[in-house]
């Protein structure tokens, strides 16, 4: 964990959002909606919470991060670029031939990626494997995984969840980016998830539901669960807004996987510069 104030984190979150939108604009391809809904938790994890070392990305005792909803990698790439895992200019190569910033996270091409993801529903299982290894090896590292609410329609998420409970993985924290939208529209219309917090709770997780765009709430929650060794995996449901911070993207499913044009990009950068309202 690093010492950084909430105000500084909010500033970082602005940079994170601007970097993600910039790379998607340059590539004219990528997923802005989910990148923006996940921006605040990603900022808190990468700039404060996780024990990681950009100079030594594979050190054995590091905390692990699994982006189960791999398509929102632009926001993860923003963190990696801002922290110096790769040169900052790498952001202008998103989805280009030879880039470490592949369309979906590729652990073999990009330092700082702990597992390749991209096919929904699968990453959490990998996180469970890492967390079991940590327990068996008596390591102190923790495993953080971000899953989408739409992604929870995949049955494998629940296979992984029951395994996390069976093996008492209190070193595993699952964040649900509950932005209520998926490609085809509102999750509630496509396939209602019901109360995702209650679902994880029923599986045996320690759960909490917070405003995923309140840095205060995020930091407070991370503080609360840091030393909580109660034999239960944690699930934090983050109520978020898809496209958060860019007015014309907010709550619009069509911004799931579309890049802004030049004019839209300018507007997005200006709006983001002011921070979240």
């Amino acid at each position: 964990m690093k010492n950084i104030s909430i105000e500084e984190l909010k500033e970082k979150a602005i940079e994170m959002r601007q970097t993600a939108v910039t790379m998607i604009h340059k590539a004219q391809s990528g997923h802005p909606g989910g990148s923006l809904s996940a921006a605040d938790i990603m900022t808190a994890l990468y700039f404060k919470e996780m024990n990681i070392d950009p100079k030594n990305p594979n050190y054995e005792d590091r905390d692990r991060f699994v982006l189960s909803k791999g398509h929102v990698c632009p926001i993860q790439y923003s963190a990696l670029a801002l922290l110096g895992y790769v040169p900052y200019e790498t952001i202008y190569t998103l989805r280009e031939y030879g880039s470490p910033f592949q369309g979906h996270p590729d652990m073999k091409k990009c330092p700082g990626i702990d597992i390749s993801t991209g096919s929904l529903g699968q990453g959490l299982s990998c996180g469970v494997g890492m967390a079991i290894a940590g327990k068996r090896d008596k390591k102190d590292y923790r495993v953080f995984s971000l899953v989408g609410d739409g992604e929870c329609q995949e049955g494998q998420i629940w296979e992984a969840a029951q395994t996390a409970v069976k093996y008492q993985l209190d070193n595993l924290v699952v964040f649900v980016d509950n932005n209520r939208l998926q490609i085809d529209g509102f999750c509630d219309e496509i396939m209602p998830l019901q109360d995702v917090e209650k679902k994880f709770e029923a599986f045996g997780f320690e759960t909490k539901r917070i405003n995923g765009h309140s840095m205060e709430d995020i930091v407070e929650t991370l503080d609360e669960i840091r030393e909580l060794k109660n034999g239960k995996p944690k699930c934090i449901v983050l109520d978020t807004v898809k496209g958060k911070g860019v007015s014309y993207m907010e709550d619009i499913a069509d911004w799931h996987g579309v890049a802004p044009n030049d004019e839209e990009y300018q507007q997005a950068m200006e709006e983001l510069a002011g921070g979240l309202k």
């Binding site: 890492m130 967390a131 290894a133 494998q156 395994t163």
Partner: peptide, 13 residues
């Protein structure tokens, strides 16, 4: 399905 993914996670360690 979970077994295969979990194995991958173990292998990374």
């Amino acid at each position: 399905q979970n077994a295969a993914g979990l194995a991958a996670g173990l292998a990374t360690t």
